[in-house]
Write a protein that binds this DNA or RNA. Structure first.
Lengths: 346, 346
DNA sequence: GTGAGTGGCTTAAGCGCTTCAGTTACAAAC
DNA sequence: GTTTGTAACTGAAGCGCTTAAGCCACTCAC
């Protein structure tokens, strides 16, 4: 296959070497800041390089034992829940900032299930397209961790894995925020609290639900409920409808994300209940969506871009030094807005 | 720099050649489906390759004149408007589907302005990290097109460029949908219609506004308004507030995206106006957000993943055959929901 | 004056793959 | 039985870069 004829041949270090009258090694040393060339020669070479607009060929660098200068992110979510979830875009924004500052590219792939995710990761790593990967949406007993460990690909997990692993992770405390939400609702006077949770297999779903149950026990709440969904609007709607049409409906519902919480508000209105008078709503993830709607939603907030930035930093460090150090990010905090209040007496 | 010692050395075609007792060329031919090996040998080689888990080194392939097997997408949007905009995630999902089926990776970069976007593209192309790029958010007289054309990087534009260019584009008719929205609103009885538009520099903003003005002339509407924003929720709020507090406020407002339309509903409620009784709202972009809120929003809908898929196909074709063929995608159509109705008489 | 550095450079090997130009063996053609 | 042709394979160059090893002054210590 021929190269692209339209574009003029891009300059290589050979061209620079010729123009400078030195060997290509000298050029390589000069351009990489390695010792082995005099300061004068280096400057001459650098000048020529920038004059001809030279850039290193990533393929050539990667081939001679260096990095691919890229990290991979595989997102495993059904396509329909993806668009509206601001989480991933924010995470990507955070990752990106750090990566591009380190001249690393971000490879993105969206897949439907874990098997495809593993396959994508395996391909990337086997083809040495990436130097490492970011793994999101950890499941309890996640099958991927074994594969990833075996592959030997540097990886940073987003979230705390359920089992001890040698893989590095960037995580934040899932239990405390849930606890504080329950404390808050109980303090307002709520006794019937329900939780609409995301995908049941996810480890953080488990952690949060556990924390919820513990908090309920602490407060001796007897009428609590946990409904499982897939994070989608539709299931948020379904879950809320089922909760709010019970004989003794909850006076407060907390959701694992923002999209479902908003769907929940819609259902309440549809049923003729007012938020927050008849039912208080708490979103488990914060985004602009929560302030976009009326009433604006009380939510657990985290700085997700920052979270992503941390993950990127840990991964780059891991790639660079093979030194895996997990990092605990800030804990989500409650932002009280208009969707929560004391329950109506009675 | 040494290779990663943790991982076992990955198999290369040399290993396969040894085990099969043939030359590496034979292996290369066999694995690429090229003529030059007998069927028996080919099968033996393929068997060994899959047994040892061989995958081609992307760097090596790229270096020997082949592709990088990746395409780049630079998204130029301020970070804060990105998270909530479902558009890009859907576009990415569409791109991704086609790309990964063709074993091409997607490189993603988020930048703040056009200069950074050009720089990112230039770097990717100069380093031959990508075989082509997708260009979104075309501006009127977009400065990038000249650079991109000069670079010679295969590119597909999302949207119709304002000036004739040799670059391929995937676009949909922007004028007709706007026209149909105005027709619809006028048919309902609206005479005072406002439009809240996105970034003023964007070409499709210009096209739509032009279409809006033309439609208004056609219907002899004298009290129309166009307010400029940056697509963000905040500016949507600001624009709506300014429109709805005028002495003669519009009875219908159309927005260039969904996020601002939702913000607009919020403002109406805050002012004490009812949607759609006092003011009808139309969102210019459809997503699940529109059905998430109450009332659900009448919107212009497009199949964005499909749009992305088309763009990916055109780009791959362009890369493959240097044959640039623009593609007109389906025109957005109006989906009537609860946010529009006849204006209150008076 | 010799030996031992040392700075500044070059040579060459090698990363994993593709591909062009042979080479060999063997069947078909005459 | 020689030529011709072709299928099946090998050799080797080359993609652009890094880097170990070598070479050649030249300086400095003794």
């Amino acid at each position: 296959m021929t190269r692209d004829e339209r574009a003029p041949r891009r300059p290589t270090i050979t061209d620079i070497a010729q123009r400078a009258g030195v060997s290509i090694s000298a050029v390589s040393y000069a351009l990489n800041g390695q010792p082995g060339v005099s300061e004068g020669t280096r400057q001459r070479i650098v000048a020529i390089a920038s004059e001809v607009g030279w850039r290193p060929s990533n393929a050539a660098r990667a081939l001679s034992g260096f990095r691919a200068n890229a990290v991979g992110l595989v997102i495993t979510r059904p396509a329909r829940t993806l668009g509206v979830e601001p989480f991933f875009m924010q995470l990507i924004a955070g990752l990106e900032g750090v990566l591009s500052a380190h001249n690393s590219a971000l490879l993105l792939q969206l897949v439907e299930d874990h098997e495809q995710a593993i396959e994508a990761t395996r391909t990337w790593w086997a083809e040495r397209r990436v130097d490492g990967v970011i793994v999101t949406d950890l499941w309890t007993d996640d099958v991927r961790l074994k594969d990833i460990t075996e592959m030997g690909v540097p990886a940073v997990l987003i979230g705390k894995p359920s089992d001890p692993t040698s893989l590095a992770s960037v995580w934040s405390d899932d239990a405390t925020p849930v606890q504080s939400v329950v404390d808050y609702l109980v303090a307002l006077g709520h006794r019937r609290i329900a939780r609409v949770v995301g995908l049941p297999g996810l480890e953080h779903t488990r952690l949060r639900t556990e924390a919820f149950l513990k908090a309920a026990r602490d407060h001796e709440l007897t009428e609590i409920d946990v409904v499982t969904t897939d994070y989608s609007m539709e299931e948020g709607t379904r879950a809320t409808r089922s909760l709010l049409t019970r004989k003794r409906r909850p006076t407060a519902i907390t959701y694992d994300n923002d999209v479902m919480a908003i769907a929940g508000v819609g259902v309440a209105l549809e049923i003729g209940l007012s938020v927050p008078d008849d039912v208080s709503i708490v979103a488990g993830e914060d985004s602009q969506l929560n302030v976009l709607v009326h009433p604006s939603l009380t939510a657990l907030s985290r700085d997700i871009p920052n979270f992503g930035a941390h993950a990127a930093r840990v991964l780059l460090r891991l790639i660079e030094t093979s030194d895996a150090k997990s990092y605990q990010d800030a804990t989500a905090h409650l932002i009280v807005r208009g969707s929560t209040s004391r329950p109506k007496p009675g």
